[in-house]
Nucleic acid binder design. Sequence first.
DNA 1: GTCTATACAAAGATAGAC
DNA 2: GTCTATCTTTGTATAGAC
Lengths: 200, 200
Amino acid sequence: MKTKLDAKQPPETANQILDLAETLIQTRGYSAFSYADIAETLGIRKASIHYHFPSKTDLGKAVIDRYAGRFSAALDTIADDERKSSMAMLDFYIEPYLAFAKTSDKVCLCGAMAGEMKALPEELRERVDRFFRTHQAWLAGILERGSARGEFKLTTSPVRTARLILGALQGALLVKRTTGDASQLRDVVAALKSQLTSGA
Amino acid sequence: MKTKLDAKQPPETANQILDLAETLIQTRGYSAFSYADIAETLGIRKASIHYHFPSKTDLGKAVIDRYAGRFSAALDTIADDERKSSMAMLDFYIEPYLAFAKTSDKVCLCGAMAGEMKALPEELRERVDRFFRTHQAWLAGILERGSARGEFKLTTSPVRTARLILGALQGALLVKRTTGDASQLRDVVAALKSQLTSGA
DNA sequence: GTCTATACAAAGATAGAC
DNA sequence: GTCTATCTTTGTATAGAC
């Protein structure tokens, strides 16, 4: 009999598959990775992957959902602490991007998929879409709060400022792969923050 | 006998193939488009495409080279007119991005390919790389000129500022596909420009 | 839950007729 | 320069044994 702890834990193989698929999408894109890539690396057969994720779309959904879920949990936690400054909240949001920038070639999962939007099955397109909308809304909320508390001086609406920030972060990761300069993202962040406080 | 005008003109079919391939890469990515897609749309056979572009890599190279060439020609022309203000030069640079933003789902060709970098054949990776480096260098040059002429007040080096601008433009196009709001890019441009002049 | 075996379509590519 | 025909490899997916 299984223990209580096992109850909701997905099998270890499934986790390994998800981990690898996530990395592959981040570096090669969704269209360019295959079950064969995963099978070879994990030392299992392609058929075994189909046992855990019947179709590639199923796997893609699971990868995005897990990825978005990790972010969502963090976003909720951050925004719930009313004592934090809005800038501190923003810093927490930006942290994962800085982490990606330290790797040699990872971009945001949804940033990679956004580049091949029309090639994605509808169910994945919806999820990428939702990911960006959620992040924009969250950022807009923080910006509005910061604005109301006098921390930020926005030059345009919170929603539009949120899009600027999200776009700049996504684009910086994309371009960073070329320059290979991880410090680049810090400059982008500094520029964004100085703009928020100066009211330029 | 052919006329002089025909001398260097690639056959019309080749141009149609290049046009379609360019659009397909911009909307679906490099990995996800195929000779079959092109053949079907143009009403020709796959073998005919191989006549013009023996391998997919050859086609990819030709698409990037033509795309980068169009930009390069424009960059040279812009920077050569010493009477122009640096801000005017920047505006000319940004124009193509605003044009993409008006289409429903096109991003920069190299922006799309940057998302699948590790899946690209080496010859294409080099070209995407060079595209970004060239643009960064060009932008840095304009920024330096504007700084020397007192038009811009930079908060960090011209090179780093150039990367910020390039990343923000690329990312904005990517995220725009989700929101579908073409005006979004104008906000990003406005934010970037106000930052350049305020010295924030 | 993982395997072997296999099906089936799509992708990239070539040979050779017209 | 475009076609038909064909080849090979890869990608996604299923059936059924262990």
